[in-house]
Simulated scan of single mutants.
Amino acid sequence: MSVDQQAGWTPRALARGAVATVDLDALRHNLRVVGERVGTDVMAVVKADAYGHGLVECARAAQEAGATWLGVALPTEAVRLREAGVTGRVLTWLEVPGSPFDDCVARDIDVTVSAPWALDSVLAAARRLGVTARVQLKLDSGLSRNGSTMADWPALVAAARAAEVDGALAVTGIWTHFACADEPDHPSVRRQLDQFDEALGLADVAGLRPEVRHAANSAAALAIPAARYDLVRIGIAMYGLSPGPEVGTGTELGLRPVMSLRARLASVKRVPSGSGVSYGHLYSTAHETTLGVVPVGYADGIPRNASNLGPLLAAGTERTVAGRVCMDQVVVDLGDDDAVVGDEVVIFGSEGPSADVWASVCGTIGYEIVTRIGPRVPREHLGVSEQ
């Protein structure tokens, strides 16, 4: 393997002129760091194509690092894991009428139930297949998204317990999700914990004995010990990014960035002073200079509002995008530094600016920066296990 290929520049990436390398050793490191800190079992959250990092590859690496559960939003994501041969416990939590309940039940996928219609759908699938379905009950403790309200909770718990006694299903977990875990001292955190504890008490009285109770995402797992229960759900921290400034930076938390987004210059040319650059001429050259074209744009996930703001490492120096971010490309002002077509530019990653820095200048969060990198950018996974 060539040096370029070891760095992710495979023939496919070279043909595209851009690559997102995914360091699975960094992912394993991050998961172990978090696991040692929290002292509970860990669910690795690999929804949304593992936050843009590659669903199957990241799921396998997470299991190798000790994750006892995998978590996805969509049932189709869970089914895809099974079709790829991924075994072990998998939880899905965002179903709609018409979701593949039969496929989930048949493949031993734990399905979240938040309302009677979902419970009925799982039970119908279990009866058609003649097996016992595994479900987890979700409480809306204050986020006001999916999950049963406290008013509806006793009826949902009673119905689930009746089906469990009947042998149609097993309630394997009870869980909830925080609204403000990235602000650990927010008053809603304590209110949600109290409501979750009340819901657990009601479930216990009804006779439910779940394997796991869980409430914590990355932020809560790292910053709110009372939220750890039996299991924590680790998403963004597994990918080496901070779950929020009040929790700490990735470096402070001992995390390593997993994704690096890089490209190769597609054009290098000298232009005179006063040259307008890109659409709208939001940038003009202050003197004679060298401009480079980087072949990634908003169709690849580069935020358009990073125009004149997005940081890049090019020709050995950190710079910003010059002018408007286009659909397929951005321009960078290289000054008088030496550069040639094909030179590497780091958009974000373990070298150069981080995805969190991109998030800061774009007024968003690191989650969005990595998950929005589009399919036109090849993913090359480093550190794939040979097993």
Rank of each mutant, 00 (worst) to 15 (best):
A215H: 11
A216I: 09
N217L: 07
N217I: 07
S218W: 09
S218M: 11
A219I: 03
A220W: 13
A226C: 07
A226H: 08
Y229H: 15
L231W: 10
G235V: 06
I236A: 07
A237H: 04
A237N: 08
P245M: 10
G248M: 12
T249L: 13
G250C: 12
G250F: 12
G250R: 12
G254H: 09
R256H: 15
P257Y: 05
P257R: 02
V258Y: 05
S260P: 04
L261S: 01
R262A: 13
A266V: 04
S267V: 14
S267Q: 15
K269E: 15
K269L: 13
R270M: 10
V271E: 06
P272C: 10
S273V: 13
G280Y: 01
L282G: 00
L282D: 00
L282Q: 00
T285I: 11
E288V: 11
E288T: 15
E288N: 12
E288Q: 14
E288L: 08
T289G: 05
T290R: 15
T290I: 13
G292I: 08
P295L: 04
Y298K: 05
Y298F: 15
D300E: 14
G301T: 04
G301E: 03
I302T: 06
N305D: 14
N305Q: 14
A306F: 00
A306N: 01
A306K: 00
N308H: 03
G310Q: 01
L313Y: 04
L313H: 03
A314C: 07
A315F: 03
G316Q: 07
E318V: 09
E318L: 02
R319Y: 09
R319S: 06
R319I: 08
T320L: 02
T320W: 01
V321I: 09
A322C: 08
A322R: 00
R324W: 03
C326T: 13
D328W: 06
Q329H: 15
Q329K: 13
V330C: 06
V331M: 07
V332C: 09
D333E: 11
L334S: 09
L334A: 13
L334P: 09
G335R: 05
A339W: 07
V340F: 04
V340I: 08
V341D: 09
D343T: 05
V346F: 02
V346M: 06
V346D: 01
I347D: 00
I347M: 03
F348E: 00
G349Q: 01
G349T: 00
S350P: 05
S350V: 12
S354D: 06
A355I: 02
